[in-house]
Amino acid sequence: MREQAEIREQYEFLCEQLDSEEMNHDRVRMMLTHYRRALGWVLEEEHM
């Protein structure tokens, strides 16, 4: 299992990428949104 710091780093990277003006392809945006949501769930479960 990944360490929390690594997961948080990936989550923050994805947030930055999704906010980027270069990220304009809808399917890529949708894929990254789902990945971002999954990482958020992992972080929430670790804090329970």
Results as ranks from 00 to 15, higher is better:
Arg2Cys: 09
Arg2Lys: 13
Arg2Gln: 05
Arg2Pro: 08
Arg2Tyr: 08
Arg2Leu: 07
Gln4His: 14
Gln4Met: 12
Gln4Arg: 13
Ala5Trp: 05
Glu6Asp: 12
Glu6Trp: 05
Glu6Gly: 07
Ile7Asp: 00
Arg8Ser: 08
Arg8Pro: 02
Arg8Gln: 14
Glu9Ser: 05
Glu9His: 06
Gln10Tyr: 05
Gln10Arg: 07
Tyr11Asp: 00
Glu12Tyr: 06
Glu12His: 02
Phe13Ala: 05
Phe13Lys: 09
Phe13Thr: 13
Phe13Glu: 07
Phe13His: 05
Leu14Ile: 03
Leu14Lys: 01
Cys15His: 03
Cys15Thr: 11
Cys15Ala: 09
Glu16Gly: 02
Glu16Pro: 01
Glu16Trp: 06
Glu16Val: 01
Gln17Met: 09
Gln17Val: 12
Gln17Phe: 02
Gln17Ala: 03
Leu18Ile: 05
Leu18Asp: 00
Asp19His: 04
Asp19Ser: 12
Asp19Cys: 05
Asp19Ile: 04
Asp19Trp: 05
Asp19Leu: 03
Asp19Val: 04
Ser20Met: 03
Glu21Lys: 07
Glu21Asn: 09
Glu21Val: 06
Glu21Ser: 07
Glu22Gly: 02
Glu22Phe: 06
Glu22Leu: 11
Glu22Asp: 12
Met23Ala: 05
Met23Trp: 04
Met23Leu: 04
Asn24Met: 12
Asn24Arg: 07
Asn24Gln: 11
Asn24Asp: 10
Asn24Ile: 03
His25Gly: 01
His25Leu: 06
Asp26Cys: 08
Asp26Ser: 13
Asp26Gln: 13
Arg27Pro: 01
Arg27His: 12
Arg27Met: 11
Arg29Tyr: 10
Met30Asn: 14
Met30Lys: 14
Met30Tyr: 15
Met30Thr: 14
Met31Val: 13
Leu32Val: 10
Leu32Met: 15
Leu32Arg: 03
His34Arg: 09
Tyr35Pro: 00
Tyr35Thr: 02
Tyr35Ser: 04
Tyr35Leu: 05
Arg36His: 09
Arg36Gly: 01
Arg37Asp: 13
Ala38Pro: 02
Ala38Arg: 06
Ala38Thr: 02
Leu39Arg: 00
Leu39Gln: 00
Gly40Tyr: 00
Gly40Ser: 07
Gly40His: 02
Trp41Ala: 03
Trp41Gly: 02
Trp41Met: 07
Trp41Glu: 15
Trp41Tyr: 15
Trp41Lys: 10
Val42Met: 04
Val42Pro: 00
Glu44Thr: 10
Glu44His: 12
Glu44Tyr: 11
Glu45Gly: 15
Glu45Arg: 15
Glu45Thr: 14
Glu46Trp: 15
Glu46Lys: 14
Glu46Ala: 15
His47Val: 13
His47Ala: 15
Met48Gly: 14
Met48Ser: 15
Met48Asp: 13
Met48Thr: 15
Met48Trp: 13
